[in-house]
Amino acid sequence: MSEQLLDTESIEPIEKEPGRFREALHQLKKNKGAIAGLIIIAIFLFIAVFAPVIAPHDPLSQNIELRKSAPFTEGFLLGSDDLGRDLLSRIIYGGRISMIIGVVSVGIALVFGILIGVISGYYGGWLDKIIMRLIDIMLAFPYVLLTIVIVAMLGPSLTNAMIAIGISQIPRYVRMVRASVLAEKEADYVVAERSLGASNFELMFRSILPNCLAPISVQASLGVGEAILSSAALSFLGLGAQPPTPEWGLMIASSREFITSAWWIVTFPGIATLLAVLGFNLFGDGLRDMLDPKLRD
């Protein structure tokens, strides 16, 4: 054992970490896609935080006389909807909701996914077998269907939509984290730390987990984009946000009857969704290229 402690190779993985991230930062400057994604995300986060300051109107205030005003008329930059509400203000507040949905859903998925994945991979045995069977069963449901079924069970609301999306995204993190833990847990540095008396908890979350963060961060970025899309889809089906919430999917849903008369009500919320999701996808793809060239597709 003492020989292993002196072995320089055994400490290498821990020391390599900051270097890899500095390297990643350097790569970031070269990766135009990731930069573009980061800028888009930053803009949307800014809009989300400062929505009340930026929005020219109250997103809920109706003005029936000015309903379905075209863009650039009556002081509505992007026009008004069927109840005379300012479309731009609603899209801005919708951005706030979508950012919250993305972060909360992925947060739920991350917390449970990492926890279950680490435990499953670290302890192995029958516990691991049971967990993996359960994950297989969850993956037997197509993702969209799983979110719909969970929301249908919990009852339609924005909170339940976030929970459903979070639960549906758990399996991917469990599998990813478990695989990483399996690869790391016999590594020299873990064996060394264990012999120094580190507890299971310390080994799992302080020694092993940091070495699995690269693929998780990539998946998390892509997951936020997916969560925004899924919540829009659930709201579109009437299973997520409820009127008059300015949620993008709900706005698109309620625009359905106006496709013949007011194109802007249909078009702009969709473009907002597209751009926000694009930002997270660009950043996620870029991050993947930076952190691990082997993962590149």
Binding site: G225, L229, A232, A233, F236, W248, G249, I252, A253, S255, R256, I259, V266, T267, P269, G270, T273, L274, V277, L278, N281
Partner: peptide
């Protein structure tokens, strides 16, 4: 990155 239902409406 596109919401499919939005694409359908467009």
């Amino acid at each position: 990155s596109m919401p499919v239902f939005w694409l359908a409406l467009v």
